[in-house]
Amino acid sequence: MTDRDITVTVDGKPETAAAQDRTLLVHWLRDALDKRGPKIGCDTGNCGACTVRWDGALVKSCMVLAVQADGDTVETAAGLSEVDGSLNRVQQCFKDHHALQCGYCTSGMLMTATDFLDSGESVTEETTRRAIKGNICRCTGYHNIVQAIRAAASPEERL
């Protein structure tokens, strides 16, 4: 099994490290680059804990080979905060609405929420639940996550 160096711009910074042809993007991000954003909660693409944006498209990084992303950009939850390190609007709404407990699904859930909010789709209870249905959370029961995402979309919500 041969290794080759690949370069991916992760959260705005070009990163180069070796990958085997079979290495999954999530393993490369975690093991080669020590990026803690993407988590692993299953091996079958069901749980969404590893969700990132790959060249702007939302993907589960366990469903992508690292070599496929060579030369591309990847955004993880570690890059969401404001420049000064404070929570961004979506993160703050998650905090205010108690939309996380153990925090293990949170990185993936934030990426999905961010992508949904960026999509311009109208944010209703129904569309929000549909948007996050590929992200499993075992702690919150989703109620507060839905509230948080809807609040982030609402111009009336004061932070």
Binding site: R30, R36, A77, A78, G85, Q91, K95, H98, L100
Partner: peptide, 23 residues
């Protein structure tokens, strides 16, 4: 009181440290 949680900032910033996270 429903105070915001102390745990949340690190978890929201993907700075938590779970079992497989520690190098």
């Amino acid at each position: 009181k429903p105070l915001p949680r102390k745990e949340d900032d690190r978890l929201l910033k993907a700075q938590g440290e779970f079992g497989d996270d520690t190098p």
